[in-house]
């Protein structure tokens, strides 16, 4: 069942995947103000990788991702936990948000903050989790 896909799937995956990934990062970054956020962005990215997997198989997907999905989960959790600590250094309760706005050219301000780091953690953990499911399932079938 999991044979590499058809031509249309190839083409679609090749073009759609980068777009989907970019869109997911966009969703992640704007999530604090507009609909979006780590969970949604993570699901979009995982969807992108899954599409690629259906088209090209799990080996190539692993190569593309470079990092093992399980390692990605680890990174996600690590980000989540790290974001909790700056507050402790300030003597505030665990997980209290800290903000370090960085002005960017063009009058825009990039709001670097612990909630953002936390959201990135969620993003990575969601991608890692879903891809662990999908890759493991796909590979268990290929044996």
């Amino acid at each position: 069942m999991m044979k590499p896909g058809t031509l249309i799937l190839y083409a679609a995956a090749r073009f759609l995947m980068p777009l989907q990934l970019m869109f997911s990062v966009f969703l992640l970054l704007r999530g604090h103000d507009e609909p979006g956020g780590g969970f949604i962005a993570g699901l979009v990215a995982a969807g992108a990788f899954s599409l690629y997997l259906f088209a090209f198989g799990s080996e190539l997907t692993r190569d593309l991702m470079r990092i093992d999905p399980r390692t990605l989960i680890g990174w996600g959790l690590l980000f989540g936990v790290i974001s909790a600590f700056p507050a402790l250094l300030q003597g505030q309760p665990f997980l209290t948000a800290q903000w370090w706005p960085i002005p960017l050219p063009g009058g825009v301000e990039f709001k670097l903050s612990t909630p953002l780091i936390f959201d990135i953690g969620v993003y990575l953990a969601v991608i890692g989790t879903v891809m662990t499911f999908v890759v493991a399932l796909a590979e268990s079938e290929q044996v």
């Binding site: 999530g31 780590g38 969970f39 665990f94």
Partner: peptide, 20 residues
């Protein structure tokens, strides 16, 4: 929390421990 999407603010800031 400097966020306009309240749901997301709850997830990553107000109730971040739950999300963790």
């Amino acid at each position: 929390a400097y966020g306009r999407n309240i749901v997301n603010v709850i997830l990553v800031d107000f109730r971040a421990l739950d999300t963790l």
